[in-house]
């Protein structure tokens, strides 16, 4: 084949350009660590990466939601724990108040202790969360759920749950329905107080079973809270594991195998150097050097 000068130079420069393009491309992969740097590098892999990343970012949000739920449930658990202690104390007072040998002075002291217990119980019912929201008023989080009026204890909230998104399509109830528990406990203590000041024979028949029932329902509620906290932890563990898996899948698709990339990079470098060397030697050869002017 006849080789013309433009053909010769064109071949050198296109060979060098090709080797250079590959060399720079691999350099970019090695330095960015990424195989996909634009949509057309791998359209299908790209779409997969995007949906995986969408899932991953979603999980991060679910974890935030669960953290918020965990805070609220933890506070609710602490409040119900304290309410339980208060009710136990009321129960003890009821037992000694039911005893006929207890003297009236002591009964009066019990009444004033029970007044304090009631106040504390209302305070617990009005527990606020991290953002100042009331935890036990259902969805009415901006008003005190429990207030003491002349008619007795009044509930100002509603009976709706507050839920958070825990996973795709899954919700977790982060509120605790304490309306009944608090109201019943308050009423039981109210009745105990009146019996202590009046017919203390009624205490063992009426108030002790009522307080026992209240204790039981608080325990029941704490069980619910504990179960929800358990689910929160489980979801969070699942999400953390799933996020790790997703990260691994994303990097499988998106990132270069660095060992292989470096080997290829070195091969490309060798090829590039060779192309340059061949070209520079080819450029040097010319009949002109052998003709005596």
């Amino acid at each position: 084949m006849r080789i013309s000068t433009p053909y010769q130079y064109g071949t050198y420069s296109s060979d060098v350009a090709r080797a250079q393009e590959r060399y720079i491309g691999l350099q970019r992969q090695v330095s960015s660590g990424k195989r996909i740097n634009s949509l057309s590098d791998d359209p299908l892999g790209m779409a997969n990466v995007l949906s995986l990343r969408h899932l991953q970012d979603g999980l991060a949000q679910y974890e935030k939601n669960l953290t918020a739920a965990k805070g609220q449930l933890g506070l609710a658990e602490a409040s119900m724990g304290e309410a339980h202690t208060l009710l136990r104390r009321s129960y003890e007072l009821a037992v000694s108040g039911a005893n006929g040998a207890t003297d009236p002075k002591a009964r009066l002291a019990m009444v004033s202790e029970l007044n304090e217990i009631q106040k504390r119980l209302v305070d617990l019912g009005n527990t606020q969360g991290a953002n100042g929201q009331y935890l036990f008023g259902g969805q009415i989080t901006d008003q005190k759920p429990f207030t003491v009026e002349t008619t007795g204890l009044v509930y100002n909230g509603d009976d709706f749950d507050r839920s958070v998104e825990a996973a795709p399509g899954e919700i977790l109830v982060a509120s605790v329905p304490a309306r009944q528990v608090i109201t019943e406990a308050y009423a039981a203590i109210e009745s105990l107080k009146s019996h202590l000041q009046g017919d203390h024979n009624a205490i063992s028949g009426v108030d002790i079973p009522a307080l026992q029932a209240s204790l039981d329902s608080i325990n029941g509620l704490r069980g619910v809270i504990g179960a929800r906290l358990g689910s929160v932890d489980q979801w969070m563990n699942d999400h953390a594991r799933r996020r790790d898996e997703l990260s691994a899948s994303i990097s499988d698709i998106e990132e270069v195998d660095i060992t292989e990339a470096i080997v290829q990079y070195q091969m490309a470098e060798t090829a590039y150097t060779a192309a340059l060397q061949v070209a520079s030697q080819g450029f040097r050869l010319s009949l002109m050097d052998f003709i005596q002017g």
Partner: peptide
Amino acid sequence: QSISGVSID
């Protein structure tokens, strides 16, 4: 180019 190109040599 092979046919029509100029070859300096």
